[in-house]
Nucleic acid binder design. Structure first.
Lengths: 353, 353
DNA sequence: CATTTTATGATTGACGTATATCATTTTGCG
DNA sequence: CGCAAAATGATATACGTCAATCATAAAATG
């Protein structure tokens, strides 16, 4: 019942431990015949390398960096929180994590952080990225040093990262459109969309996906021109109030960006008919708005799932091993009924982990 | 930069390795003063036990059993598939998994499987359970042997399991109701619900949750009496065809159980107005129906997430360690736009794991 | 104070793999 | 055949922890 060790394999194959080791670790200088014998023994005994022993022997430690926008953005706060919890847990697996805050959404800030990474001897980095030629030089240096790089939430130039972990924003936009379409039950509609800015790639993609579906499948729904908000709650609030007044026929609102507290505030005191309202990212205030009925749907990115994936992907990249089976990452739809337990709530159900 | 070892801790605390070990592993016979010194050294050096070394030394292996209903049920097929993939991956962590097929949904079959478990020396078991007094005797034996037991998808008697991993079916039913409610946009509605049988606890809970929300928040929607289908596709098909004919005003259909291929077949050739259709579990045929527009929403249980959780929970139970941070498990809503990549599809995006 | 507990120190051998060294054998080739 | 090159064997040390042993030192007890 005990798992066979490499010595067992060697014995079964009729070779020495050294030769078996040469085969397993591909050190070369092995006759084809021996190789085959060892591989057969591995197969017949069902040998699997004991990673605990291997890691111990190698003295391997994983030094990971997470580059995440600074500031009080509720979404990234949530992500940081999950990240530190996860990091703490992985400490016993010799994984050390450094969270590096980058100046929010500015190429130059990210560039500088990347430059300072180069001298720091990390094994891997997960980076909330941006697209921009300025990043290529430091990214190239990191890549050439053999550091595993992945894009997180927002992608990096493709050439310089081994994976992207985040939702497909076109899919997110399409999903919002589908649900808003359904909510109209075939009736005429008029939808106001909000976005942070034109340069934000994710906002752009969400809007494009949104329009695609509305145009294709819900011709009876008209779209007003997107209002730009700089992701600023005050602007969102003002604009929402204006639009609600001007467009009395408004049937739905979709905010692809941030600043939802402004949107919620604007809807809060409204007694009349309230447009169907879809926003992104489950954070304390959107959760509350959902429960109180000001918002109808939240499309969430699941930062917890993303962080878990990031760890798994970085480790397999660093070890050059296949990725373990992981749950898929898709935009998650929340209504007021299927919300996860509030983790900011201190009460935990011990029976139901 | 290297992580400190227990020897480092002992040296810093001014005690011998043996004493430090006595503190860390709670072996007793240690003076309070030494205990404190060691704990301080642990804190100041940031010592974390190296689990790789510990597991190696202990020679710990985890023998896990998964008891899953036999048969060709598409949902459990999917779950089994994910389970074997995960099991294979964890083999290198000295986790061995045995999948035990139990006679589908019959107390007696489950009972016999549990009895045979008792002599088998597992460390833990994840069980797709049933409620029933007959199970208590073997469960008690398992518990008394110190085997970690968790309920999976469908719960066991609470007293005899340490955790339940599965969605809250009331929540799932509520979620379905909310979305069907939304799809009516305030208009009058008539909804037909289907369920497998009255004894299936999960079906019952889903229906209850569903009715709760419709009654409370969508008074203009009427519910027809639930049609029982034995989860048999042929029955579902016949009943759907009958109801579509008899109830010409039908605005929505909600099937809380299985047999969806029958439902889909009945809707397939229908040219006229199609009721809004909500079903459970993303499997090949529901996925196709969603893409082709026969079904509008699928509420999924995420067997992949459940399996991942099951492994994590069993391991921490067996090690008596805290649970790592894991993504929440909530009923997932799929529309045709936010479907995960089809894993039965052989093409994989290597850039986007 | 002598004696019994109790606590501590010193040390050792696993666990399974990685990695290195050095001696020896086998093979290939002219 | 003889020699170099290639392949193999034998063996040792390290990784950090667990678990055990045995001797010794300190504290508690009467």
């Amino acid at each position: 019942m005990d798992s066979p060790t490499l010595s067992d394999v060697a014995r079964a194959a009729g070779v020495s431990y050294a030769t078996a080791d040469r085969v397993i670790n591909k050190r070369g200088n092995v006759a084809e015949k021996s190789m085959r014998k060892v591989q057969e023994a591995v197969a017949s005994l069902g040998y699997v390398r004991n990673v605990a022993a291997a890691n111990l022997s190698r003295g391997r430690t994983y030094r990971l960096a997470f580059l995440i926008p600074a500031g009080s953005n509720a979404f990234f706060n949530r992500m940081r929180q999950h990240l530190s919890a996860t990091a703490q847990h992985f400490a016993s697996d010799r994984v050390s994590v450094e969270i590096i805050e980058i100046a929010a959404f500015a190429i130059s800030g990210l560039h500088d952080s990347l430059v300072s990474l180069v001298d720091e001897n990390f094994d891997g980095a997960a980076i909330v990225g941006l697209q921009g030629g300025a990043l290529e030089a430091p990214l190239k240096q990191l890549r050439d040093k053999g550091i595993a790089i992945i894009g997180l939430v927002s992608d990096l130039p493709e050439e310089y990262r081994s994976a992207y972990i985040g939702i497909d924003n076109t899919v997110a936009g399409r999903t919002a459109a589908r649900l808003i379409g359904m909510s109209h039950a075939g009736r005429k509609g008029l939808v106001q969309t909000f976005a942070g800015s034109l340069d934000a790639q994710d906002h752009d993609e969400r809007l494009a996906g949104f329009r695609e579906v509305i145009d294709a499948d819900y011709p009876q729904i008209d779209l007003l021109e997107t209002v730009m908000t700089k992701d600023d709650a005050a602007i969102v609030r003002a604009q929402t109030e204006t639009q609600l007044e001007v467009q009395s026929e408004l049937t739905a609102i979709y905010n692809v960006g941030a600043g939802n507290s402004g949107l919620i505030a604007a809807l809060h005191h409204r007694q009349q008919f309230k447009p169907f309202c879809v926003v992104h990212e489950l954070v304390p205030h959107t959760r509350r708005a959902l429960l109180e009925g000001h918002v109808d749907l939240v499309i969430d990115q699941r930062p917890d799932v993303e962080i878990n994936r990031a760890f798994a992907v970085l480790r397999s990249l660093i070890d050059q091993q296949p990725l373990p089976p992981l749950p898929d990452l898709v935009p998650t739809i929340y209504v007021r009924d299927n919300l996860p337990a509030d983790t900011t709530d201190s009460t935990m159900k011990d029976q139901n982990p």
